[in-house]
Amino acid sequence: MRLLALAARRCLWMPPTLLGLTLIVFSISHIIPSDPARVLAGENAPIEQVEALRRKFGLDLPLPQQFFRYVTDVVSGNMGISLYTQRPVADDLLERLPATFELAIYAMILAVLLGLPLGVVSALRRNSLLDHAVRVVTISGLAMAAFWLAILLQLLFSMKLNLTPVQGRIDGWGPDPITGFYTLDAVLRGDWEMLGSSLRYLALPVMPLAIPAMATIVRFTRAGVLNVMSSNFVFYQNAMGLPRRVVIWKYILRSALIGTLTQIGLVFGNLLAGAVVVEAVFSWPGLGTYAYNSILQSDYNAIMGFTLFTGTVFICVNLLVDIAQAVLDPRGR
């Protein structure tokens, strides 16, 4: 019950935050450019077309009125038409969301599965050879540009060794989506060939996203475990002679995990940001490639839509992380 109240309280912050986000994107698209209509129409559009756009989108109205229009549009799911695809931006984005999510979720799973145990073990064996090796990996992982790592992997595994496909998400045109998550769809259909194909395409793009994420998780888990190890309750448990394995794997781990969980929201944000460049390298048909193409085409509506959309997704993810944390940590309730 208290949890429900807490979730409700957190959710109440959503509308103002989203409104703030809309205001930021509105400022970028309507206030920064000296002539938003010109930007919308494209550099070479004739004057008449620019003027028509100006009237059509009310760009000649006072700013507060424009903002009001903008908010009503966004709330009703209208983010304008993409210059490039000639379709509503909102439709484009929704269609591409599953591809990006599939990539991000696999990257996250991999990062957590590898990062947590490595973080715990390197904290327990502090200054051991393993700890030093893990430190080298995390320090490089955090310093690597994701797109560069993506290109290197592509160069090595796809182009030189021919182990994985160079680009795309699946062989052929791809099936009619059920959920849009190809691996999940394949399982739902019982189509193992499709599962294998989509996993082969996933393998490489997942890596440049997962490695920096893993580095962050290792770092926080290690620091968290060390921090908890020096806490008073661990001292008490040792003084009372509780078995070491119980102290570590039950009490220390649980506390450290909560710290790591707070980072998951941040890591997810980095994954979404990394997806823009990594998807571009592998032509992965998700939000990132969409954003990349929009930048190349100066497709203005599409970019602003992408920003709003990604921001909203990120805000929702953070909300979920907040609630999950409250469930795990009794103090937050």
Partner: peptide, 23 residues
Amino acid sequence: MRVSDVFLAVPQIVLAIAIAQTL
């Protein structure tokens, strides 16, 4: 702080892309 929280609610690079593209 609410204003900075809104900024922090979006991955930095995503906002930076929008601004850089506009400019």
